[in-house]
């Protein structure tokens, strides 16, 4: 076997790996869209110590944090069909459960995981905004909801953004585990290509570069956003 890199294959496979980017980003965006509001809701229950829900959120966070994502993927990927099957059988629904597109599993699994991460991110971010501002908002006649939307969240978001960025980048990288449920994302596509001629090293280099490009782009986007949002901090910066 030739030990030098197969450059034409390296280049060809780069485009193959790149073609997985939309899938990886789709999973990331959908997971974030689901996770952000749910996590925000749970973070509020944690801050305000709402009984029961706050405890459930706490346990949920510990569970997700305490287990590897790949295991969460395996468990949910095995559990969901069994769960659906029992429901469908009970209500006599005829639906080919095992034909469900892996994309749907990816949405569920990664939102499940990201929600837990974001609960903690939001909880700490909301804590950075002094409670006095909420009181001041009340005293000038704003409702709690208006105060959150106009005063608290815009400030909490600024302190949350670096952590949200980390969570997003981690999520993009975690979608590489989608290969375990045959999700046609970056890693799987390049690996399939490599299988043909055993050019694994080239494929891995391609995968490496593609993730690097995507993640750096996302980081830059967040940096720009953070700068825009934190204009009000200019003097204390």
């Amino acid at each position: 076997m030739d030990s030098s890199l197969n450059i034409p294959f390296l280049i060809d496979t780069f485009w193959v790996a790149l073609s997985g980017v939309p899938t990886a980003l789709l999973v990331t965006v959908v997971a974030m869209l689901i996770a952000v509001p749910v996590a925000f809701f749970f973070a509020l229950t944690r801050i305000n110590n709402i009984p029961v829900i706050s405890q459930i959120a706490k346990i949920y966070v510990s569970f997700v944090r305490g287990t590897p994502i790949i295991i969460q993927i395996f468990v949910l990927y095995s559990f969901i069909p069994i769960f659906l099957n029992s429901i469908f059988t009970k209500y006599n629904i005829d639906y080919p459960i095992y034909d469900i597109h892996p994309l749907w599993y990816a949405f569920i699994i990664f939102s499940f995981n990201t929600t837990a991460v974001l609960i903690e991110v939001f909880r700490s971010a909301l804590g950075t905004v002094d409670r006095g501002q909420l009181e001041a908002a009340h005293s000038v006649g704003l409702t709690t909801k208006q105060a959150y939307i106009r005063i608290i969240i815009p400030q909490a978001l600024v302190s949350a953004l670096p952590n949200i960025c980390t969570a997003t980048v981690n999520l993009i990288k975690a979608t590489s585990l989608g290969y375990a449920i045959s999700l046609q994302e970056i890693t799987l596509r390049a690996k399939v290509e490599a299988n043909l001629g055993y050019n694994y090293l080239e494929a891995y280099i391609d995968i490496f570069i593609v993730y690097l490009i995507v993640c750096i782009a996302v980081e830059q986007l967040f940096k720009w956003w953070e700068k825009r949002l934190s204009r009000y901090k200019m003097a204390s910066a």
């Binding site: 002094d130 006095g132 501002q133 009181e135 001041a136």
Partner: peptide, 10 residues
């Protein structure tokens, strides 16, 4: 308020 409690983002 004692601590002013101005809205810092405004």
């Amino acid at each position: 308020f004692q601590n002013y409690n101005l809205f810092n983002n405004k």
